[in-house]
Amino acid sequence: MTKNQKLADLIQGIEGMLSKSRCPLTGEEEVLLKLCLAELEDLRNNKSDKLGSMEKVARWLLLLFEVYGKFIEFF
């Protein structure tokens, strides 16, 4: 599988999460996913520094999972 295909799969997965609303997302979580999506699009189109973009995406995803974990603990 090529790098572009992997990026396309990640992009498609995030878009699917946003469109299907499988779980309730807060506004902040939705914004984080959209920011990750934008970074992945830039990375796929080679418009940005690849290492810096991947670090940003990883940080946003970690933050999203942390928020989601706290949401699950709350209920």
Rank of each mutant, 00 (worst) to 15 (best):
N46V: 13
W60F: 09
R22F: 08
Q5V: 05
Q12K: 06
G69E: 06
S19W: 01
I14L: 11
V31F: 13
L33S: 09
L7W: 01
L64G: 11
G69P: 01
K50F: 10
W60S: 04
E41H: 04
A38M: 08
K50Q: 11
T2P: 05
K50S: 07
Q5Y: 09
I11C: 00
Q12L: 13
M1D: 00
C36M: 04
S19F: 09
E55G: 13
A38G: 08
N4R: 07
I11F: 14
E55Q: 11
K56G: 08
K3N: 04
K47T: 15
T26Y: 02
D42A: 10
T26K: 01
E15R: 04
F71A: 09
L35D: 06
Y68I: 02
P24I: 08
F65C: 04
I72F: 01
K70T: 14
S53T: 10
L63Y: 12
K20E: 15
C23T: 15
L33K: 10
G69S: 14
S48K: 07
F65W: 05
G13C: 08
I14V: 15
E66N: 03
S53R: 12
T2S: 01
F74M: 13
L51Y: 07
T26Q: 10
G69H: 06
R22Y: 10
N45A: 11
K70E: 04
